[in-house]
Design a protein around this nucleic acid. Structure first.
Lengths: 160, 160
DNA sequence: TTTAAAATCATCCGAAAGTATGAACGCCAA
DNA sequence: TTGGCGTTCATACTTTCGGATGATTTTAAA
């Protein structure tokens, strides 16, 4: 396993939420301690509770910070035996059309038949973003519908 | 959203390590408390420390449980295909799926990216009929959307 | 450090797609 | 001649798509 190889993404929103959560939990504990007696025989329990709470918070934090799965786009070019120069066309086409990495992700899933919502889930982005991407894809591919985009994408070999 | 739910992987080792770590940290804290005085004015600091420690542990746990990330890159893979068998229509599949003539007509246009209305015009039938056909097609192909139908149709070579 | 492109997200609204149900008609084989 | 199948059509309803617009945040490059 690649241990801590997972990339972290800085986002102060998450840090802020974590900080606030931590502060609130500490406050809550403080209040609890004001009402209940915390002697030695209860400290174990308290520390245990705190440990669990912050473990959960840590897990949550990590989940938030870990960069969501990055798509691996493998472009399989169908090379027919008679034509050998069809090799470089794909990348050229992609560049010519100006399709970005993320747009290719969306396009790939689109071609596979996934709905916008499913694509959003798979790429860990919102439905809105998928729509934005797909709209841009349609513009760049000069098509009107996702089905046409799929057809053209396959025809131009710009996807798997 | 259930984003990260699917990414977790059960691993007893990690749980074990976590449990042992937790126990050891608790023990350490207990020992520290035995040597140093923990009065009210120090409790904040202690709880804070515990919080941090277990947050880190939580993060570590999460990192361990989350599936390793995938590299992002575009790979060009050449797939040599015999052009003669690539264009062969799979009649057996069509019969197995029970697709009728008219359904094949609709499916063909569907794969090409035409809308239901356009298909209706091309086949000189009403939009309703196209919808009926496409619904039946989805049932027979066991898919939910036209894009999936297109993908499956191409994969099974039951069109064009 | 500034800038530009890429990626993200939201909302509103109309269009297209898809579901469910019912029905009519012709063809053909049992 | 009847029942099944394919084809056609309709209405009503729900869901998904797609366009338009505006915005913030990241990332990469200059």
């Amino acid at each position: 396993m690649t241990k801590f190889g997972a990339q972290l993404r800085a986002s102060y929103k998450e840090y802020l939420v974590y900080g606030i959560s931590m502060a609130m939990v500490l406050l809550l504990l403080k209040m609890l301690m004001a009402h209940f007696i915390v002697y030695n025989y209860r400290l174990d329990f308290f520390i245990g509770s705190i440990a669990i709470v912050f473990t959960v918070l840590g897990i949550w934090l990590a989940q938030k910070l870990v960069k969501p799965k990055v798509e691996t786009r493998i472009i399989e070019k169908e090379v027919y035996i008679d034509s050998s120069e069809a090799t470089e066309i794909n990348v050229k086409e992609i560049e010519r059309l100006g399709l970005s990495k993320r747009e290719l992700d969306v396009l790939g899933l689109m071609v596979e038949g996934w709905s916008n919502e499913e694509i959003a889930e798979k790429l860990f982005i919102s439905l809105s973003t998928v729509k934005t991407h797909s709209s841009n894809i349609f513009l760049k591919l000069d098509v009107k519908r996702r089905t046409q985009a799929a057809e053209k994408a396959k025809r131009l070999n710009i996807i798997k």
